[in-house]
Write a protein that binds this DNA or RNA. Structure first.
Length: 390
DNA sequence: AACATGAGCAACCGCAATCCC
DNA sequence: AGGGATTGCGGTTGCTCATGT
């Protein structure tokens, strides 16, 4: 535990990498793999610490990195995921598989954050800056409920992200292991955490706080830049779309989006149930949530659902009815939760004044985006099976 | 042309989680 | 179980380049 004794810094080079150093590092990793980063620099003939080498590799030299401008779809994904996950850049990065967390973090800090601020949206809370004017009645209650949903979704997405990471590492060995063992067994010597549970695969992020932001993004920023959103999914690639774990125990909730399966995590907060749905190594992941904002909130979310007479059971029932029903049910739950649903598809700064329209007319910004999200869901449902997004 | 300022981005730092003996 | 070693992650720094004055 404790601080890692970083490499002996004496005589080690810092600062920008030269092409020669890059070449050495590349050549070594191509031939030997990176193995122990600590030992790598000496073997590769580099006057760098292992940490620096690892960073250079993961953020720059790795062959599967896409560089250059972020696409509209990538921007939207980042915003949406940031609304759900906060500054969990690595988790966000797993949904933009060719981007590094560092790159996404930089892009957020230098571009998106400022742009949102310009649009009158708090980049931290993803709410309109005058959201504080919301009255203290049902709206705030709705907002609280949605906040819990957001936390739930946050936990789900993070679990999914971990699953994606793991699946990449062990995609080849998994089948063999599963043939001998019904559970997931850790086989990697690297830092691994196993897939957690019946995890959503290929699921579209569900509405949350990001609703307002995305709508405003579309209505405001995109309009101003003349960009259209005709191609959600465009070059966006979600690694989750390629994964299925059907060999797992039957999921608590299973549905599909078009031809794509979607499995949901059970977040029922009863004491015994967690063992049923969470494989052993998954518990390690959930420790994180316990330490941070995870399982307790997830459980409180569950109880909150019950308060709303929206139990996981009812969710399960509804999602089993049909594919579309599944998504629409949850979406409608979110969207119908607002007292006043102005179905204005417009957004942007003008809408900002209306969303928090000061008059307290009952409109909230979650409810203003039904059309937007329905369009997203329609795209989801209608996207071709080989769509890179789902 | 010279300087100031700001944006963008690569890289570093240090904490925390996890691995492994 | 305990502790050192390793890795992952997020915040921050500092360099480079573009733009403005």
């Amino acid at each position: 535990m404790g601080r890692s004794p970083c490499c002996d810094k004496v005589g080690l080079k810092k600062g920008p990498w030269t092409p020669e150093e890059d070449q050495k590092l590349l050549a070594y990793i191509e031939e030997h793999g990176h193995g122990s980063w600590r030992a790598l620099p000496a073997k590769a003939g580099l006057q760098r610490c292992g940490k620096s080498c690892r960073l250079r590799w993961t953020n720059y030299l790795r062959p599967d990195i896409k560089r250059g401008k972020f696409s509209l779809q990538e921007e939207q994904t980042i915003i949406q995921l940031h609304a759900l996950l906060g500054n969990r850049w690595s988790a966000i990065a797993t949904h933009l598989p060719k981007r590094t967390d560092n790159e996404i973090k930089n892009y957020w800090n230098t571009h998106l954050k400022k742009r949102l601020a310009k649009m009158g949206i708090d980049p931290v809370t993803h709410k309109p800056k005058n959201d504080a004017l919301l009255s203290n009645d049902g709206q705030s209650k709705n907002a609280a409920n949605l906040s819990h949903m957001s936390q739930w979704e946050s936990a789900r997405l993070e679990a999914e992200a971990r699953l994606v990471r793991e699946s990449k590492l062990r995609s080849h060995s998994l089948q063999h292991q599963l043939s001998n063992n019904s559970g997931f067994a850790s086989s990697s010597s690297g830092s691994t955490s196993a897939p957690i549970m019946n995890t959503p695969v290929g699921s579209a992020p569900l509405p949350s706080r990001s609703l307002y932001v995305l709508n405003a993004w579309e209505g405001g920023w995109l309009r101003s830049t003349g960009q259209s959103n005709g191609g959600i999914g465009g070059d966006l690639e979600s690694p989750t779309s390629t994964l299925t774990f059907s060999e797992n125990a039957p999921p608590i909730m299973t549905t599909g989006l078009g031809e794509h399966s979607m499995q949901m995590i059970e977040f029922v907060g009863t004491s015994g149930s967690s063992e049923a749905g969470i494989v052993k190594e998954g518990k390690r992941d959930w420790k994180n949530y316990e330490h941070k904002d995870g399982i307790e909130n997830s459980m409180s979310f569950t109880s909150n659902l019950r308060d709303m007479t929206w139990t996981p059971e009812s969710f399960r029932t509804s999602v089993q009815v049909g594919n579309v029903m599944a998504e629409e049910g949850f979406t409608n739950l979110l969207l119908n939760n607002s007292d006043d649903r102005r179905l204005s598809a417009g957004g942007g700064e003008s809408d900002n004044g209306g969303g928090g329209d000061g008059s307290g007319s009952g409109s909230d910004y979650y409810g203003d985006n039904k059309i937007y999200w329905n369009s997203i869901l329609n795209l989801v449902n209608s996207s071709p099976p080989d769509s890179p997004m789902f």
